[in-house]
Design a protein around this nucleic acid. Structure first.
Lengths: 108, 108
DNA sequence: GACATTTAGTTACTTTTAGTAATTAATAGA
DNA sequence: TCTATTAATTACTAAAAGTAACTAAATGTC
């Protein structure tokens, strides 16, 4: 078999972290504040903070502080982060084609 | 902001499960046996079994039993599974472009 | 037919990660 | 200095992953 590529493995390790996909989807729409993301996504502050820190360390997300009142902190995608758009797009395409309505409906 | 699509959320939930990406990468090369995948991937039998069961239930993976001696069981991708190839390909592209050698090297 | 051999799982147990809620830090304006 | 607001962190509980030993199934051999 074709050997597992270490780069692919590393990439998968990042992207398969819970919530990372949704955070990327959110940030592809433009810069977002912490509280906005907390509201939009079904993720707690504790993990959102953790994931943003990881993504920042990986150079995927950029953190900008605006010293206003009250303090405003914006998260946005770096070039490395924006380059993940095709990945997210392909997942969307697949989801539209193969995930049925019933699968996402809560059990009645 | 643009509302989170439930289908996308469901798809992300599946794909962001640990090891699922690597399992898909493996199966995109062709049908594989349990023990082959266990050897190729850095995943234990317990979780491999669990993931394959989930993917089978989701209609992504097909399980075929060959009653030979010794018994042979093959896992392969359904159409729904094969349709994930563009996703995996885009992750590979991104990894090649943005994951550096140092990032995947063990600390020396 | 009992038994050995091989693949494919499962079970029982420990460690790590995620989820929840309350608390704290930081900052500027009143 | 005190208040208001956002952005986290901490302490605790629940769920998921990792590890290793064990079991199930199936067929060929004696």
């Amino acid at each position: 078999m074709e050997k597992l590529c270490p780069r692919f493995e590393k990439a998968m390790g990042l992207l398969s972290k819970r919530w990372v996909g949704l955070i990327l989807f959110e940030l592809l729409q433009g810069p977002k504040r912490f509280s906005e993301m907390e509201t939009d996504l079904p993720i707690s502050g504790r993990l959102l903070s953790d994931r943003l820190k990881t993504l920042e360390k990986e150079g995927i997300v950029k953190r900008t502080i605006y010293s206003e009142f009250p303090v405003r902190i914006e998260y946005s995608l770096s070039d490395k982060g924006k380059a993940l758009e095709p990945v997210i797009k392909e997942i969307q395409n697949w989801a539209e084609d193969f995930i049925t309505y019933e699968e996402v409906e809560p059990k009645s």
